[in-house]
Design a protein around this nucleic acid. Sequence first.
DNA 1: TGACAAAATGTTACCGCTACCATAACCTTT
DNA 2: AAAGGTTATGGTAGCGGTAACATTTTGTCA
Lengths: 341, 341
Amino acid sequence: MKKASRSGDNRGVLMNDVARRANVSPMTVSRALSNPKMVSEKTRTKILDAIEQTGYVPNRLAGSLASNRSNTIGIILPSLKNSLFAETIQAASDVLSKKGYLLLIADSGHLLEEEEKLVEAFLGQRVRGMILHNTLHTERTMAMISNSGIPVVETGDLLAEPMDISVSYSNFEASKAMTMFLAKKGYKRIGFVAMITENNNRARLRRDGYLAALSELNIGVDETLMIEAASSLEAGRDALTKLLAIEIKPDAVFFAGDIMAAGAAFECESLNLKIPEDIAIASFDDLAILQHMTPSITSLQIPRIAIGHEAAEIILNRIKGQETGVVSKDLGFEIAQRQST
Amino acid sequence: MKKASRSGDNRGVLMNDVARRANVSPMTVSRALSNPKMVSEKTRTKILDAIEQTGYVPNRLAGSLASNRSNTIGIILPSLKNSLFAETIQAASDVLSKKGYLLLIADSGHLLEEEEKLVEAFLGQRVRGMILHNTLHTERTMAMISNSGIPVVETGDLLAEPMDISVSYSNFEASKAMTMFLAKKGYKRIGFVAMITENNNRARLRRDGYLAALSELNIGVDETLMIEAASSLEAGRDALTKLLAIEIKPDAVFFAGDIMAAGAAFECESLNLKIPEDIAIASFDDLAILQHMTPSITSLQIPRIAIGHEAAEIILNRIKGQETGVVSKDLGFEIAQRQST
DNA sequence: TGACAAAATGTTACCGCTACCATAACCTTT
DNA sequence: AAAGGTTATGGTAGCGGTAACATTTTGTCA
């Protein structure tokens, strides 16, 4: 193919040009594109030909402005690096792009103020809907969303009173269930490694779930068994090391986030500790590697794909005007019991 | 906070409303926002107050349309799930969002036709620049990009003749280098597990690099040592199993993609094979887990973050009009030698 | 074949903002 | 205090489409 020259000042082919070429009014071109059945077969063909010949690409900015309907959906995550979000995004993307929506994706870096700015920027782009992973927001964020009138789904945790729509599972219940599970397995001293709880309600809820389980089991809380750690392999290793250094060692550790459990498992291997004989390990997030490791690691299975899927579907329904009345959708969780416990 | 009612038909506060409230013309409001120094301190304060009171959020669709300058950058990846892309996106996002740009992100599902549709959709949104990971495109994609006049970076592989800009490393050289490295370590029968080569030029180049190394070393190609596999832990396990089933087993295997090497290492553990004594393993992509596994796995270190960073910077420079003349930027790679070889 | 409804197409105004040029206000300077 | 140069502000006309209504064409049936 011959390399075409790059013309920087090209404002391009307009709908008008296409219209003239096809001997119709611009309006008919517009209709041929957005509502083909409204245009006669013959005219439509003429128009499509003209479009192909000219290489016309409709300006969606103009279209959205005129119609007051954009085709973008905004997604805000605490971090883009976290691969756990990838499945949810992919699922949402699959559903939305099939319907012609484009995704604006940004990360707040776990900062509520940053989320606020992003929400404002997205509203400035007149996104048609939004998905927020965090469930903690500044007042201004909530105010902006509230009077934007667009559907907004929060996915990080199941909310009794979401701003608008909640699609998730209960971090609290999941964490509690896993702790109960470990206790029923016979483990007596269950350590807990939390994610960083600052600005992260999910992290807090998971910790609270752990505590609730202990309380229900009439087990006293031992602060030395609780650690807060970042979401990384290194942090997981460190956390395990710390827990092994306390006076009365835990016989099981529940890692409440991400990839920490894998790090801990690697550390055990380095230390020649047998899992689960010397120490049992359970993880909150079910990463693919956890089921492939030797031993495989017991985890909570979170419906990440379903969350993305459902969030997208509900947004689409809201856009279509089907006020589903759905406010809070619980997609549940499951415990995958494996060799590590 | 009291829950505000959701008003669906709210077209919101306009610049005009702000202007009236601040006793200035809309034009002055516009300037106060986009070019504050052009407005007197006093007026600016009045305007900012009015904005705060009214909760005005500028309509960027209208702004972009009028000024012919949007604030969005498009990114197209073969897949959103692949966590390897996350670092690159994050890096690009960091640079771009700092300058007020928003990211449109989509995945092509490894299909060139899908990429074409997405490019068209992005151009319809009048994105200011684009980052494409794939380096293989349909003719129409190239044509559209060419006469769009916007900066477009390809990041998947270093290109001698990019459509516009190439920021990457050489998959061919990297793969060749690792193969040479293994050979120099004394391994005689080096297996190679390629990614799926269909529609994926990177996969092909990596395979070609392997072949080039063998050729340079005067080692004959043994087809039974070459396998193509998907990017997953399972596929990595399977690939290893297959290679162990051939007549004369390999003494080293180079996994040319993603997470396959980890899968293979897990399989070795299951089979009680010692790495690297029984079989050596090397990986193309340096995932975090590879250096934490026991044994740690030799990998190529790809400058993923630098790629995202540089791609974004170059786009920004182009937008600012600094025709840097950069066409192809090689960010190199390194071999991280670890216990597995 | 004329009347009338339905389908296809056209006309006009405007979406909400910014470029561009015009004007007004504010300083200097002599 | 008039002249001249800044600096600050305003008016007007679009950007490129679409909504809403007007008009024309087509089809149907008595």
